[in-house]
Design a protein around this nucleic acid. Structure first.
Ligand SMILES: [Mn+2]
Ligand SMILES: [Mn+2]
Ligand SMILES: [Mn+2]
Ligand SMILES: [Mn+2]
Lengths: 153, 153
DNA sequence: ATCAACATGTAGCCTATGTTACATTTCAAA
DNA sequence: TTTGAAATGTAACATAGGCTACATGTTGAT
């Protein structure tokens, strides 16, 4: 059974239709999505807190995101460099236009996913829980499909 | 508008039903899921490669996962410590019983999610792409719902 | 049997994201 | 006006997961 270390030349036939290459692409995108999850969760939280409290403070974000204020601080530095937020020392955090736009997209995606799961019969709590993760991996095509099915009936 | 740094005492009323705490819990779980995504993708890939090639080699995994062999090596060290794989220098990688069990679960989840998306009308390619990310965030309840709906009709 | 090409291993670097411990700033209340 | 508790900032550390460059091991072909 043990295949040798080096593969023989695969006589003649085409070098396989490389399912691995497609798999790799999919996994790469999945990892790329993962990298922007943080930004999405932050701007969404900032938008929510701004709406409900009037402004978003570091402590509020930390509580809401379930991390320490240190983590929030460092991430905000990155988000500012990325152009999503404006911060000043000891002041509240505000979204840029770009950040607000991202937040709106995220909120819409989040709500669509959650609503879709509920419509399938998934419990309120589980729908909200799963949506928090799934929202970052739903392509525009899939999101459109969800919305179409939500509109029906 | 600018809320003061320190909040006033919130006279009398209960200290709000803490939606933040629930949000934080959801986000924490989402991050926890993220942390095990790697393990899941690896054991799934190892199982696939073992089935199609007879064994899983580091280069095959690197190609399939879309990373370098260095990354594969280090991750395999962690997976071995976690008890999912057995490795020996310069030899193929094998799943432990625990690893095989995890791989089976992942494969089932992956297939269910992909099949469900296809059934909704999502294109083959997009279904596969989205499933690669979504699979890690689908709770047992949601998975069961998907399966039930797949069985119908 | 030799050996070069490929597979595998390792050293050292990076970023993202989490933590605890401690320093500094702000402002509501005394 | 003073002041101390809460908020915010910062230093130092840890782990996961990427990478390049280079060293070492294996084995199919010659
Ligand atoms: Mn989320
Ligand atoms: Mn969300
Ligand atoms: Mn995956
Ligand atoms: Mn998968």
């Amino acid at each position: 059974m043990a295949r040798s270390l080096r593969k023989p030349k695969a006589a003649g036939r085409p070098p396989e239709v490389r399912p691995s290459a497609q798999q790799a692409e999919n996994l790469r995108r999945s990892r790329r999505d993962r990298a922007v999850e943080t930004a999405q969760d932050y701007v969404e939280a900032i938008a929510d807190l701004s709406a409900s409290l009037g402004e978003a403070r570091v402590v509020d974000l930390a509580r809401r995101l379930g991390v320490t204020h240190v983590t929030v601080n460092r991430t905000l530095t990155r988000l500012q460099q990325a152009g999503y937020v404006n911060t000043q020392p000891y002041r509240a955090i505000f979204l840029t236009d770009s950040g607000r736009k991202l937040a709106d997209e995220c909120k819409r995606r989040h709500q669509t996913v959650a609503a879709f799961l509920r419509k399938l019969g998934v419990s309120e709590k589980t729908a909200e829980l799963d949506a928090e993760g799934i929202e970052h991996h739903v392509s525009p095509e899939t999101l459109a499909t969800f919305e179409k099915l939500l509109a029906r009936r």
